[in-house]
Design a protein around this nucleic acid. Structure first.
Lengths: 206, 206
DNA sequence: GTGAAGAATTTTGCATTCATTTTCTGTCGG
DNA sequence: CCGACAGAAAATGAATGCAAAATTCTTCAC
């Protein structure tokens, strides 16, 4: 809800109870779920902490995301309807417009919608659930990537063009490969964002 | 713990509390986690039920498993050490022995170990966690597949041979493809097992 | 005998309470 | 002045209590 919680911070139950206006019992249930989904760490007798992601965690997450979307793209090409392709094309053209006008928030929103649409077109609930769970976990360092560099933006746009092309041709293998590369290409940006975040966060210890 | 719970059954909290010797509070926390991991359904005010898997759920799960292991295989080939390959080869030869002697339980155990080892060799914690979570969910209809048919068994063994070959050559794309096909080939067996389970389960309605 | 309406029982969801562990604080000794 | 120790305060983990919802059972009308 209030996104400004730094990784590693203690999260006292009492305070959260007041914030949300509920008692400790349902709150603890929710915390257990968040812990099982990897969003927080839950140390025995020592409370909940916002999970601290290492660089390897970030890389692993992006690799998994890339793998999931690649699989989704491959499956989608075998099953997607003409109407669904048309809808994704529409999203793509809208996004292109925002790209040309340099409207980053709107661009990012459509970007996300396109990826979600491809995953949905895989028509695989298990895959979709795994994707949702992962993107929820990744939101921390994904949103940081809003500070996209202009050259990277152009590259991403070109990759999206290729994706639409492969999707039109129902070339599942190619779409999967492009999606995989496309998402791994975001790693560098995410690394930089995370390093910036770390620098702004703990200016204490040497 | 006691595996003989039929899908769709009501599971009263009170009863589970007695079974496990704990109070309702920690039990409910555990149930919430199980629900978030997709192992049970948790209906509001109506308690927990063992999740009922449809045929599509089974298909989706196998597709996701195939996608995850394919990705793992591809990543593994790029990173795996000579020692890890040797270890997997050892598991493979042991499994082959059990195959020749028609020792199904030992075969299945090593089969699982090989797949786990490939996932581990991907050196990707996020992927490994997703794989663990999915296999936990799939245990219901995976174990049913112990009634493997002899011809399918031979085919599976040949596929494993190809996997080891691709792994030796560090051909990630081929290993990924083989793993994907290999796991999808289990679908038919799982379907049959599930149908048998359903038939033995509800002989009531028409 | 069948079906429905309503009361009694059970069960869930949440709040509160209690015991144990951890953390903070203040004091004392070096 | 710094660190260790002891007690106080707070936080966590779990049990219990209570209100609301659901399920079951009883009763009655047809």
């Amino acid at each position: 809800m209030e996104g400004h919680l730094k990784p590693g911070d203690r999260v006292p139950e009492r305070q959260l109870c007041e914030t949300f206006g509920i008692s400790r019992t349902p709150l603890r249930e929710a915390l257990k779920v968040l812990a099982s989904e990897g969003l927080i760490d839950l140390l025995p007798n020592r409370g909940a902490r916002v999970r601290k992601f290492t660089e390897k965690d970030v890389r692993d997450s992006f690799e998994l995301l890339a793998s999931l979307e690649a699989a989704a793209g491959r499956l989608a090409c075998a099953r997607i309807s003409e109407a669904e392709v048309a809808e994704i094309e529409r999203l793509h053209y809208d996004m292109y417009g925002h790209y040309m006008r340099r409207e980053l928030p709107e661009y990012l929103k459509l970007n996300q919608a396109i990826h979600a649409a491809i995953v949905a077109a895989s028509n695989n609930q298990a895959l979709q659930a795994a994707h949702r769970s992962l993107t929820a976990r990744m939101r921390q360092f994904r949103y940081s990537a809003s500070t996209i560099k202009r050259d990277r933006w152009g590259q991403a746009m070109r990759e999206h063009e290729q994706m639409i092309d492969a999707l039109r041709r129902r070339d599942g293998r190619e779409l999967g490969d492009i999606l995989f590369e496309h998402l791994l290409n975001k790693l560098q940006a995410a690394y930089e964002a995370m390093r910036a975040q770390e620098a702004a966060e703990v200016p204490e210890v040497t």
